[in-house]
């Protein structure tokens, strides 16, 4: 199994606590991530992402491959940032992998983030192991993206296995359209 080389990777960290922000940046740099850009809340992150297209010099970076965001931030929280990335016309990449790093780790909150299109969820307090497990999944097991009337984001069904209860995904074959496939 080949080792990851994160040298070309560019990550945006949105975290309002300066120590936790600095910690995550340091950890990602230690893991070998080439570029780590930081934002003090969701609004600052949106500003950086918006500038990627129109004014990369102002953004301070030419591309962002992954977003790591805290959930609870003021004035713009991580969920607002996630919504913006997935839905806003100015988003530089609506398919951007988005990792929520949050102390809100109860099932209800995790499902809420999932329903807004989060890619991975890291519970706080995190460990290097928990962080790496999510990064491994990001890289090794990306999912197709799904657009429906009320959802856009990674396929919420990660596994292909038969669900334990009744099948809730009732849809005819001709109601599914593959818009894009370059795999």
């Amino acid at each position: 199994m080949a080792n990851f080389d994160f040298g070309l990777l560019s990550v945006l960290v949105a975290e309002d606590n300066q120590y936790m922000r600095s910690m995550l940046r340091t950890v990602l740099r230690a893991l070998g991530v080439g570029t780590v850009t930081v934002a003090s809340d969701g609004g600052a992150a949106i500003e950086i992402l918006r500038n990627l297209k129109t004014n990369p010099q102002k953004a301070g970076v030419s591309t962002i491959d992954v977003v790591f965001s805290n959930w609870q931030m003021e004035p713009v929280d991580g969920m607002m940032l996630l919504k913006w990335v997935r839905r806003h016309k100015e988003s530089p990449d609506r398919f951007m992998p988005f990792v929520m790093v949050s102390g809100f780790s109860d099932r209800k909150r995790v499902e809420l983030a999932r329903d807004f299109g989060v890619t991975e969820f890291v519970g706080k307090p995190y460990t290097i192991n928990s962080l790496m497990a999510r990064i491994n999944t990001l890289v090794n097991a990306p999912r197709q993206y799904v657009l429906t009337a009320d959802y856009f984001g990674p396929d919420r069904r990660r596994n292909r296995e038969t669900p334990p209860g009744p099948e809730r995904r009732v849809i005819a074959e001709d109601e599914i359209e593959v818009i894009y496939d370059d795999r």
Partner: peptide, 14 residues
């Protein structure tokens, strides 16, 4: 009209 649209992108991160 399709109710579900799928996007299958190459694994850019990998």
């Amino acid at each position: 009209q399709p109710r579900v649209r799928l996007f299958r992108r190459r694994n850019r991160l990998a």
